[in-house]
Amino acid sequence: MGILVNRNSKVIVQGFTGKEATFHAEQCIEYGTNIVGGVTPGKGGQIHLDRPVFSTVKDAVEHTGADTSLILVPPSFAADAIMEAANGGIKVIVCISEGIPTQDVMYAKKFVAKKGAVLIGPNCPGIITAGEAKIGIMPGNIFKKGNVGVISKSGTLTYEAANQVVNAGLGITTAIGIGGDPIIGSTFIDLLKLFEEDPETHAVVMIGEIGGDLEIQAAHYIKNNMKKPVVAFIAGQTAPKGKRMGHAGAIIAGSKGTAQEKMSALEQAGVRVCKSPADVGQATKEVLS
């Protein structure tokens, strides 16, 4: 179970034959992900990692029945790859690429929605359903199976949070890195909804950060709709205003988008908010006991 992806997901890799994509595709295959092929324009007909290569997503879907795509292409091609996936009939599109122009993502997101597909990312580590499918670049061994869902804007902080959850004697259903760009595909709310409906997930950890208001929107949603406990941490409590903190979207604009503002909104929504990033595991254990 878990959400969005599982052992039955048929996954293609866009940018399949590239060096980085090859490395990560191998890791995904080793984890047990059902990678059915890949796409590299102009290389259709070749075999790579014992799997067929197609020149277009359309061909790949036709021949393999793929429903999920992992995008590992350079940023200047990534928005096009997202839209090609949606147009080709892919239902879950996971885009790892970092550095895509914001306006490109804006159009791509609208197109994906029109096609009824789900976009994860961009600029994210991907999605993993523990023990079933790893569609991303995260170290799979950290994510031991259990009943906690994880949604996070940051890569390594996702690993940190998942590791703490596991060390607290719990485990993960699905963990999703949603990305740190100003516009991202799936947001906290989209995924909280799915976790709320997933019978295997008993609690959700959400890791936010400064910039934008996705966490505030999530707080409203949680307050009115969530029955499962939510634990949250917001990174950037000590970040200076007006400085971009690594992620393109992590910037306090004027007085908007501060960690404090987000933490208090989440607290008011009944979320267990951790002030320290080291308390996430323990807090999750407590909300579940």
């Binding site: 890569g155 390594t156 902080l157 950060e209 400064i210 409590q237 000590t238 970040a239 903190m245 990033p277």
Partner: peptide, 30 residues
Amino acid sequence: MVNGAGLAMSTMDIIKIKGGEPANFLDVGG
């Protein structure tokens, strides 16, 4: 010195919580 922007911000945060002050944000990247 941290890998990843989110973890780098969190590292600054926890230094403050432990009673110190961070001297910098540094993400060494992937």
